[in-house]
Design a protein around this nucleic acid. Sequence first.
DNA 1: TTGTAATTAAAACAATCGTTTGATACAAAT
DNA 2: ATTTGTATCAAACGATTGTTTTAATTACAA
Lengths: 229, 229
Amino acid sequence: MVTLSNEHESDTRQRLIEAAAGMFVEQGFNAAKVRDIVARAGANVAAVNYHFGSKEGLYAAVIQYHSAQAIEVLSQQAGDDRGRTPAARLRDYVRTFLQRLLTQTPQFTMSKLVAREMVEPTAAFGLIIEKFVWPQYHALQAIVRTIAGEKLSEELVRRCCLSIVGQCLYYQFARQVVACLDPGFGYGPADVERLAEHVVAFSLGGIHQSARTRTGEAQKSRSGHVNGR
Amino acid sequence: MVTLSNEHESDTRQRLIEAAAGMFVEQGFNAAKVRDIVARAGANVAAVNYHFGSKEGLYAAVIQYHSAQAIEVLSQQAGDDRGRTPAARLRDYVRTFLQRLLTQTPQFTMSKLVAREMVEPTAAFGLIIEKFVWPQYHALQAIVRTIAGEKLSEELVRRCCLSIVGQCLYYQFARQVVACLDPGFGYGPADVERLAEHVVAFSLGGIHQSARTRTGEAQKSRSGHVNGR
DNA sequence: TTGTAATTAAAACAATCGTTTGATACAAAT
DNA sequence: ATTTGTATCAAACGATTGTTTTAATTACAA
């Protein structure tokens, strides 16, 4: 209620949101402790309950704050797809997806919060799915469909989409594992750029192969097109 | 120390391990509370510290117990690769990987614990990586290499491997999201079987496409082989 | 300046966590 | 029978959690 159109608009409130966003991204909702958050914000313990009612309220405020920012960016990027090749659209999709997810920039905090919600859902899960996951998922579905040229069943389109986002999200979910299995990958802009190129190429090949293999007779696909023979 | 060759071998100890394994798989190490574990095991709260010293000790015992069982299964499956086509080996790899990861059978608990360690590492992380992730990773690397026919750089081999396991693990990490985006997927044996077929086909196409695109000039791959043009 | 509301701060609250204690029962050994 | 070692239990411990209280401080209007 005090959120908008209030001339005072406490500075502590904003610092709490930013500090909490960092902690929630780095440690998740449950692992992030309010005493650590207020310490990072330079505020008192009671401040979170005073300004947001509860830890959950603070989390909701964090989501709402970065939501507005993220939706704004999302809307301005959409619409310039006309004339572009389907593969180029997939490239853009994967590249921006990975950049927002993996690079350290304090911008695009929302993408990391969404990823957190996937592995450790909170009360905001439904809202996150509706406002961010579904739209992006549908956009990816459209891209995959045009790439496959209507040769894919709806089920296989879903499978391909999940394969694509699964590849990307694994690098965020399992950072420590990636650091072990691929020590050369440093999550820098250049690394992310090359990763995006791989995911795009890999997924383009995967989509076309799925379109060839068809949906029904998965059982006897031993005699398919890409077998090592 | 008291683990083997002890005639008493408390029954409570075993019940604790099994109950704890379930809780750790379902909720993770931190979210699983010892009072819930002992309740499921029908034991007293003090039993955990009496038999295992601490919650971490219980977790270590769970890992050790299912480790032995899992390594046993792993060793008996290896070695029957001779004469099989590379694609068939990838099919076996993905299928068993997904079955162990996604199906509900109390067997193969280890796979789910390994997946948990990836997103929420504990003190056992290093051991898990060394004993389970590395071997499986190397096996997959060998398969991918033979499929690509030496045309892939080592970096791209790693990328392809991570793309494959990323596709699989996403269905375990983000179960709730999958349930939203693909409500028809029920994690039953038939679902997992069809998913495996997709991941194999998708990945075979991805590997071959990666082998075509090559490693260096990712930048100008706009004129590659599979672009929608 | 004074009065009023908003904000901050120190302290404590109640609940929960992993852990420990001390008593008790039971078994095998002396 | 007594001792010793093992196992279980109810109860409580100390630490940490999110939350609340109460008073002090600040900011702004009358």
